[in-house]
């Protein structure tokens, strides 16, 4: 079972993730090309200006207005992306398969960062259940996306601490990671792919076309 999830399924997950992401981005760009005004309205300068103001925490007025949310969401997203890439155990797998390796973080730091991701998921779940606006627009898919995001980190945390049967937990962890990779292009987790484009377009529209700003 381990060989299966570690070998062919991992291949499949990465191929679907990369090919699926490319497909979705090309599909989006083709759709924007159909709308005659989207590309002429774009401007590199204003796209970058918008991204700078929204990718750096507290660099726009709305984030200053909601400090708690800003801290949680940045901590959550940074840990979510950084931890799996620089985790020693993951790099060892890359090294075994492809003979490539890069800088890794200490396991203690990775442990804390994993806890931050799980805590972030709990925060978002709490918001979904209690904030009336969010609750009203939440359906099963939103809980599912939250679960898909949380599961690799929860199982990874348990596996690392070897709380249950290590081998089983490891297999579940790898499976969970693969499910998340596959889900990114084809669910609303695709905001990971699209947010750069939506941000750039709104920034261009506000800056280049309307001579205003969007932060």
């Amino acid at each position: 079972m381990y060989e299966l999830v570690r070998g062919p399924l991992a291949w499949a997950a990465f191929i679907i993730f990369i090919a699926g992401s490319l497909y979705r981005i090309i599909y989006m760009l083709a759709g924007c090309k159909k709308e005659k005004i989207v590309f002429p309205h774009m401007s590199l300068k204003h796209s970058l200006a918008s991204l700078v103001h929204w990718v750096i925490p507290f660099n726009n007025q709305y984030m200053k207005q909601r400090p708690a949310f800003t801290i949680v969401t940045f901590a959550f997203h940074i840990c979510l992306v950084v931890t799996p890439i620089f985790l020693l155990a993951h790099i060892i797998l890359w090294d075994e398969s492809w003979n490539i390796s890069w800088w890794s973080m200490s396991d203690t730091i990775a442990d804390y960062m994993t806890i931050i991701v799980i805590a972030g998921c709990i925060f978002f779940l709490y918001r979904r259940l209690t904030d009336p606006v969010v609750k009203n627009v939440t359906d099963a898919s939103d809980y599912l996306l939250l679960a898909i995001t949380a599961l690799p980190f929860i199982t990874g945390f348990i596996a690392y601490h070897q709380w249950f049967d290590y081998k089983t937990m490891l297999i579940i962890h790898i499976l969970a990671g693969e499910i998340m990779l596959i889900a990114i292009p084809f669910t609303r987790l695709s905001h990971m792919l699209f947010f750069v484009f939506t941000r750039a377009y709104f920034g261009s529209e506000q800056g280049h076309v309307k001579h205003s700003k969007d932060w």
Binding site: Y27, G31, C32, K34, F69, V137, D142, F194, T198
Partner: peptide, 26 residues
């Protein structure tokens, strides 16, 4: 009459509700 924009907006919205605080109607 619509294209990439509407499709991307609907597929990107994560239902976070942060827009509510912007609206004077709300």
């Amino acid at each position: 009459e619509t294209g990439g924009r509407l499709w991307t907006y609907v597929n990107t919205c994560i239902h976070c509700g942060l827009c509510a605080e912007a609206c004077q109607w709300y």
